[in-house]
Structures are given as structure tokens and as C-alpha cells.
Nucleic acid binder design. Sequence first.
RNA 1: GGGCCAGUAGCUCAGUUGGUUAGAGCGCACGCCUGAUAAGCGUGAGGUCGGCAGUUCAAAUCUGCCCUGGCCCA
Length: 1249
Amino acid sequence: MTDPTPFEPVSTELDFPRYERRILDFWKSARIFEKSLTARDSDAPQFVFYEGPPTANGVPHNGHVLTRVMKDLFPRYQAMRGCRVLRKGGWDTHGLPVEVEVEKELRIHGKAAIEEYGVEPFVKRCIESVFRYTSDWESVTERLGFWVSLDDAYVTYHRSYVESEWWALRELFKKGLLYQGHKVVWWWAQGGTALSAAEVGLGYKEVADPSVYVAFPLLDDPETALVIWTTTPWTLPSNGYAAVKPGVDYDVVSVGDALPAKKGKKSQKPQNPREFSAKKLIVASALREALGAKIGRELHVLETRKGAALVGTRYRPPFDYYARHRDELRVKRRDGSEVDTWWRVIGEEFVTLDTGTGIVHIAPAFGEDDHSAHKSQLAQYEDPEEVELICAIQPDGTFTDIAGSYAGRWIKDCDKDLSNELDSKGLLLASELYKHEYPFCWRADDDPLIQMARPAWFIRTTALKDGAIANNRAVNWLPEHIKEGRFGDFLQNNVDWALSRERFWGTPLNVWVCSADEEHKHAPASVAEIEELNPEAFAHFRAAKEKDPELSDHLIVHKPWIDEVSFPCPKCQAAMRRVTEVIDCWFDSGCMPFAQWGYPHQEGSAKRFDDAFPADFISEAIDQTRGWFYSLLMISTLVFDEELQKKMRLTRVREYPLPYKTCIVLGHVCDKEGKKESKSKGNYTPPDIILDRVRMEFGVLDEAYGETAKPGEVLVGREDLEGMDLVEGVAVAAYRLENSDARRELRLRIVKKLPRRVAIVSKEDVEALGLSVVPTGLDTKPVEVPRLPAGERIVLEDEKTPAPGSDAFRWFFYASGPPWNNTRHSLKNVRMLQKDFVVKLRNVYSFFVIYANIDGWRPNGPNEAQPVADRALLDRWMSSELAIATRDVRRSLDEFLVYDAASRLVDLVDALSNWYVRRSRRRFYSDGFPQDKCDAYATLFDCLVTISKLIAPFVPFFSEEMYQNLVVRPKLEGARESVHLDDYPDVDEAAIDAALAHQMRAAREVVSLGLGVRTVNKLKVRQPLARVDVVFNDAELAGGAEAHVELIKDELNVHEARFMTGGHDDGAVAFRVKPNFRALGPRLGKRVQQCKKALESADGNELYAEFVADGAILVDLGDEKVSLSGEEVQVVVEAKEGFAAATGAVGVVVLHTTLTDGLVDEGLLRELLSRIQARRKDLQLEFTDRVELEIEAGPRLDAIAQKSVDLIKSEALATEIHFRTPTFDGHRSSSVGEEAFSLGLRLAVRAPA
RNA sequence: GGGCCAGUAGCUCAGUUGGUUAGAGCGCACGCCUGAUAAGCGUGAGGUCGGCAGUUCAAAUCUGCCCUGGCCCA
């Protein structure tokens, strides 16, 4: 037995989340994703996608949705195109953010506190923390339809992953690319730890620091001194150089008399009483006057020199703790020359003339510029390692023993004494308090951070800079400007990668150092390798495991256990100890191309890696430029050089680029004002609002700004209301999240100033729902709301409008603009785009299903269509549009241009809905199966089936719904179990008819212009007119239009349509000749404007006549006559004023508006039919119900109706028409124009259900 | 402070190598249609193309400076 209807009816309710859940169930139970992984033969081409691992220690937000949606699109597309596509998931699990999160939980902070708490339990907590939100991630991932294998996801803390990294590091170690140096970090001295940039950003506050102007006397001329300015006197004992800007002028000045005290400042201290040891000072010319004012002296210029001329000058440092010991220290440069190691002037471009003196005190151990200046000096030396850094400060923030009386004292406490000492030596020129922003520890906000050089391990990335740049050049960056812009720039300015971190939860650096000789180092690449050197190396971990069997096996390669691992030095047999550091977690993620397979240690990993390297495509947000995009590219460049590729027997020596061919750089998701979504501001739309239900949770208030809520009312801020896409006065359901049964209906009211995520609720409603008020009141931050006690939170939900769902969310990101632009995200915007595409498509789909079911039409049934070439023009046009769109969408997706592809699909659906279906509707209304109807069904059906496949990568849910109903249900030939196992549509080249597309566009414009004429002249479309004349600019179009004459007549409701070009002149049109600037500009230059004026002032019709006669136009430019060829001018027709006509790009459309009696009669009949149909609708009749009619009208209308009984019967599905005074229930009296009439209508025969 | 990106209609965005009436969709107004009907169609109003200078016969488009927002880095 066959189904009663060919297709499942399409629900009229738009509840996408509900339908999508059904599809999710289907995918799950039928294991469609798993099948998609094995659907292609093993010799099919592979499309390689790398998952950039997210850190799962927070709930996913809209930015993550964007990334996942983009990552899903191309694998789906490529799989349908016939590729094998692996989709291995991954998790990023290490790093400072994880440790910070755990520190917060434990309410501890700093290295010492962690050690006190115990590294072992701390690390265990880190593991826990990392997967706390995994289920949130998994459910969002699934809900979005992001297909990725989470079961065998790679995890960066896993042993095999870590061992892969060790292997890579060992390769670098062997190549001499791993070395020890110093890195300047923001250092929290009290806590003994470095802070991440994000943490530093949290702790800025304004403070007043001592700022001092200090003289550095020249060694060879102590009467003359350089003047420097600093706000950190405590760094002066560690001074190494003085830096000038080579290109700017410096003045040598003599110090004159004290300046007179400024007027109006009575309490001014006597002008600088200090004695200066120097009589002459050196200062940047631009800052000389400012310096004079600061030190209160007249300064007379003696000479002026370029900064470059000062370079090399030696000076006496302000404190001689080091100079005392190392006065004679000199160092050899690579160019053979010798130079003083310290206390000389160097040239640096970073020196600015904004503040200070234009001469910068450089303490290489403190400050990043300082350190890099030092490094560029080192780079010139034969043996840079020989030079020991000057640093008078210990990691705990106190002076070292070398600093005499300051030894052991907290640096900031010494600022004053240091200044005094300088003053007494005559070196302090001025001092004052200086207000500026300075970072403090965000947890202990009395502790200032200091910039300090710490010992660190580096990767010598600069050695392979050229390789990295070559790799980058070969990458297909989207948008392109990243290549030479942000990323290329970063690579050009590449500095060595500071790899190590003095932390606990990370991949341990696999360098072991010999206890007998520091020069002996060893970098084992695996646990097994270490055990070969010492079978008992991991005894400590094994014992711990025995004690606690729950202990994760992966922790064998982690702190603190790994720090116990020792083995004999391969060179001298003394015991080796591991260095204490862990490594930057960006190194983790950058190793994923090979580490995800455990390469090269794991069995089978060689083939897997070889197969899937490099990636065809990756995509992450723009902030990954210096993160993952960099670490992936740099590590591959460093590790996989040609030699290693050969050694590891990769099947072919890779060409550029490595390790990804295309990278889509995503913009950020912003709120509707274009501001970045942030948790603390609360200006984000939680993904659930789009995916699941339109609801938000609020902290409960009882009163604010003197506003209280009446019972049945709830007060919220404007932004929250807009966030739910609601307007004031609407009722929402209010309930508690954990007790959603107890509900109240509350009306929304806006309180403008109310912050986000708090709501004012009346006493009665608070009681009824068992709520209590948040004690923090208006200070409740959005980010705190979910953490409030259950009773202090209320959910407001718009139950009437279902959420847009997953397809809509996905579509929003594909269709709202190119993915590299920032998107303005909101529920409203998502709904807008949904309506524009999926809902429109669904309407067409629904239209088709309704009629196919009425007629019992089946795609594989008996009512066969003709070949496309023989079908009606409209069908051929639509088939052509479909083929063109298929071609364009494929092309765009092949080039990773999502937005282009999405825009193309929008156009296609628009063409199908707003033109094909609109024009074809009547063809489906006819009885039986005339050939034309069969053709129409087949055309529409083909379009829908093809579209269901075209849209599969974009909106996988709705695509599946259509496919299941249109393809699977009727058991169409070639049907697969799921659209996602089917092939992406091929381009039907034969169907493409470019000329037809062009003509149809013109025809549509003609119609549009004609309707415009009707509107302007207040001529209803219902009123037939005698004729339309279309004067085309282009003769070819005029010829082509004949094919569309019926369409144009019908749309414009005219009896006749005439198409003509140029020569025609019935008085309604005029000609205008315009210069073709593109052609004339280069030839005439300036005179093109004169030419324009000449053509404007001439009579267009005469010019045209001249053009027709001579094929050219002679223009008088005053001094000269110029002949313009057909190429150089453009002739257009325009409507003359006073005619019912409109001008457009195709030409002019003229309507003949004279109404004859016959035309008026026709109009009346159409009017009557319209009223009858309106009655049918009022009575909510089915499309196929038959009715009985009663009509009573004045003589004219009566005559018309009598004459058209058959027409009325067929149009209105009437079985009988009674011309009598209506008697049926609900009959109406009305009038059309001047014709009064009464109408009765009742159901005669109910259509079969 | 430096680098990169963006700024076009009320909103979301197009706008080809500079070429002369700056486009689309949504929203709005008016109207149409009524057998896709909590749909569909048409017309219209709305823009000193962020600002100021410059190059050019011609600038939304090229150059410089500035303003606003975003990101990265100091």
C-alpha cells in the first residue's frame, strides 16, 4: 500500500528548534556522521581539516559558535564533493588561564602559595577544571550540527601528545635551535611569579611615582653629562647603557643662572638649590627648554650634534657597584673591533621626544625595550654568552648583596634614599612626583608589578625566519591582507620564541642537565627512551599510582612527578636533573598536526600524519594570528625541513605551504552596537536564546531609582528587552530555573537606567514564585547572575515565539557578511536573515508539498514531464538559474568564499519564490495533469531537490528535512539515507542559458517599470489597460522580449504589448546622447567636460537623427569640432513629461491609460471575483472546497456577471450561481466604484480530507 | 604610543582596474494581490559614501592628515 499522500505535509508553525531536535535524533540513531566518515573509498582524495583546540574551562559563547559553524561548512561540502574528510576533535588543556582558574577556586595566588598547597593536588585540580565545562561544549557542538569526532579527540596533556612535543623539541635541540637566555616579564615579586598580559591588563591604576632627572658624567670629560629621566630610580644601580635616537639633534648646553621663580606661585620653593657636578649637559634639542624649566636653570646652547655622533661615548654610571668591579671589561665584536661592554651611548629608534630628555637610561634586566636594546648589542659580539647581565635585584624584589647599603631592602622603599644619594653626589638635577598608570597585581593590589628579566628557554625562530616567510607567502589567507599585513609584519619582525614558563600545569620542557657539568644536556623524546637510560626513572610516579589507582596515567609526563625523573648522563654518567620549567601552551597546539597522532612514537602514526599534512583548511578568529596560526606555521617550518622529511620518510618532500593551505581569519562577534561582547558588560546574547528558547535569567530586585513593579508586571532595562527581541507591554513567562512549574505571566516594562540582567519584580510576584531579593541590588553584575543563590534569580521567557534554531544561527554567520568582518549579532538580526532565506525557501517547499499532495503528484509517478529543453520558457529559465547558481556556489565554496556562496543562494531562492512560483502558481491550479502542469511540477521539484543538497553544508537540518521528504520518502532513484551522504549537485551545463537569463532580467525590469507607472497614475493592476509600449535602448533586448510578451501582458494586465527600439517615436519618448566617459576621457582629457555640456545643451532627438544618419556625431567644442563614434557616446531613451511612462536602464515603458467601456467592464469583473475570493477566505474554506453563490447587482455589473458565469464558476470553484437577493448566512452588500452589489456564499461540497 | 582592519540609507551589507542619477535586503509610508495567506508583490521617502585637504578632465574608489570603533602589540 502506498502512502495516502506523496509527501509529509509541512507544518505551518515555525518552530525550528523542535524540527531540528528531530533531525538530531535521526542522525544519532542512524549514525549518519559516522557513516559520512567512511562513505568515500579509501582512494578518494582527502580533504584535511585541523581542529584548533578550544580550552574547555568556560562556557562556549557566540565567538565559539562562529568558529565551529565555519569549521563545519567546508568539511561538509568537501565530503559531499567526494572527498574523505577526517574530523578529529581536540582540546587545549594546559596553560596559565587554567592555573589562574584553579587559584581562584582555591583562593590562593602565586607560586609560593601553590607550592604550599602542594603541586600534586594542584595539578590534579587543573585536570578537573579543564573538563568542567566539557558537557556544555559537547551539547553546543551537537546542537549546532558541528560534526567532529569528540570520542577520539586529541588532548594536549595526554602522554602520547606530550611525547610528540618532546620529539619535536629534541629535533630542535639537536639542530641547536633551543637555547637559554633572558626574557623580560611582568613580575609579581611578592608572589614570585610572572603574570600574563591579560592579568597585567587587569591591574592598572594611577599612582604617583618619583621621577628624577639624573646626570651621567662623561668618562673622558666629567664636566659634561648626559641627562636622563626615569620614574624607577631603583633601576639606576642596574644601568647598562644610555640610549639616544640617532637621527635627532642633541644640544650641548652650559648650565647658567637659576631662573627667576614663576609668578603667582608664592609657596614655590627657592629655585633649585642643588649643586650640579657637571657644568655642561647634553639633552635632545627638542626637550632643552622643558629641561631648563624642570631644573630651574638657564641653558645656553654651545653646540648641536646628531644622536648618531654621540653613540659610543662612555659615561660614568650613577652607581658604581658594578663599575667598581668591571671597569676594564671590554668585549670583542664580530667585526674584529673591541668595545666597552657597559656604560656607553647606544643608538635606538624607540627613543621618543615626548617626555624626558631624549636620552634613555637602559637597565637591560628591567624593561622590554631595555632588554631588546641589550640583545641587539649582544648580537654584534663574537661570544654573546660571555656577557653577564647586570641586575642588582633578586626575584623577591630586594636588592642583591652587591648593592651595598641597599642590599636586602624592598626596591620601592629605596627610591628616596637612592635619590638622596644622587643629590649628595651632585648628580640629581631635579626630582618630582609623576602621575601615571602603573600595573599592580590584580589579586594583591598593593603589590606593584615590575618588569624583570628572567632566565628562560628560547627557540631560535629567527634562524628560520625566511622559511617561515616563504611558507606564509604560499598560504591562501582570507582576507588576503593578513598575509602581508598583520601576519607578514609579525614574521618580518620576528624575535626568538620565549618558550619556557615558570609554572606547573603545562608540558614539561624535556631538557635534562648533568649535575657534574652544566654543559652536558640531554633531551629525551619519550618515556621509553628515558627508561632505556634508567629503568627505574619513573619509580616515583609508579609508586604514586599504586597508592592512588585513580591517578591519570597521563600524569607520568607531568610535574611534579617528572621532576623526580633522573638518569645517568650519557657523556659522564653523573645524574641528570630536568630543568624546572614547563613550556608555552601555544607550542602544544602548534604541534597538533603530528602530535594529534602521537607521531612518531605511536604505531600507525607515521601513515596518519603523512596522509593528513598539511591541512587544506583551518579557521579561527583573528586573535589567533600570533597564537595558533603562528605556532602551527613556525613549528612546522622549524621541525619539518627537507632533511627531516627525508629522514622520516614522508612520502613526498613537502612543498610550501606548511602546515595549512587556506586559512580563514574570522572577525569578532559584537553586539548590535558593534561593541565587543563581554561577559562583564553583559552585552552578549547567550547562544541558548538563538538555539533553544528565548529566555534570560535576571537577578531579582524590588526597587531601583524609585521604581517598583505592580503585580503582574516586571521591569527590565532596555538592552535586555531588545536582546529578547521584545517590545514593552508584551507578556512573558516568569519562573525559577530549577522550578519551572511554578509560573506567572508578567508584562514587561522598561526602566531606562536599569543595568543588564537585573529585573524589578513586585512583592506579590516575589512571594508567589518563592523568590528573594538580591542583596547587592543594582551592583549585581551580569556575570554574577548565574552564580546567585537559586531563589534570587528569575527566568523571563518569551513563550510565544520559538527560538530561531541552529540553522538560523549558522546561516547568520554565513550570510551576514564576509566572515573576517566583525558581525553585529542579536536575536533580531538572526531572525531577519532567517526570514530572508530559510523561511522563504520553506514557503516554496510548503507550496509544492501542498499542491503535490492535492494532485497526488509523485516524482517517479506516471505524470512525466518533457525534457527541460521542451518545457515552457519559465521552466527553462528557472532550470538555467538553478544551474548557474550551482556553478557559482560550487566555485565560491571551492575558493572558500562563504559569503559569496550564501549570497548566491539567497538570490536563487528569491528567484524561485518571487518569480518562478509567483508566475507559475496558476499552472498548478488546473485540473488533471496537462503537460504544462507536469512540467511545472517537475521543474519545481528538481529545484527543491537540488537546493536541498546545495544548502546542506550551510543549514544541515532544514536541508535534511527537505531531502527526507522529497527524496527519501518517495524512494527516488539514487536516494541516500541522508542528504549528507549524497553528492553535491553537479553543474548542468546544458541547462545554462545566459541569453535567456539576460532577457528575463530585462522583462522583470519592464514589469517593474510598468507597475511603477500604474502606481504613480493610481491605476490598480486589477483594471485592465489596452496597451503597453516598451522602447528598448538595446535592439537585441527588443527582439528577445517577444518571447516574454505573455508574461509582460499578464503582469501588467494589458491587452497588448509592443516592443520597439530607437526609430520609434510616438511622442512619449525623447532621446539623450551622453558621453561615454570611459572611452572619451582618455582621448579628450579636460575637454571631456566641455563635450558633456555641448551634448547636454543640444537637442537629443536631433543628435540621435544625426547619429543614425552618419554613424557619428560632430560636436563643437568652441575651438574645434570633434567627431564622436558610436563607442564614444551612449544613446538612451527617456520618458517625456506628461505621459504615463517610466524610464529605466532597459529603456522606457509607456502605458496607454485610456479606459474604454470594455476595459472598465473587465475591471469590474476582476473586482467581483476578488470579492468572492475574499469571502472564501473569510469563511476559511479549503482551496478545493466548492461553493454556491448568490449575486445581486446593478444592471451593469449584473450583465457582466451573467456573461461570465463560466469564468466565475471556474475561478471561484462555484457549483452554482444564483442571480437573486442573497439569502445565505453572512451575505454582504458592497460596491465597486459606482456599482453596488450584494454577495452570498456558502459551502456546497467539502473537499475530500 | 605603533601596526592592521572597519566606518556607505533608520538597520544589515554590496559597490569590479577611478568613468558622472551610489545599489540590495530589512524596517518605515503608501498601495496592490488574495488558491504559499501569521505568506506574496509594487512604488516611494531616506545618503555632503566618518571629516578635512590633495592628485585627476573625473574620487565612495588613489594619496596625506585627523576622528570613531575593533583587534593585535607596546
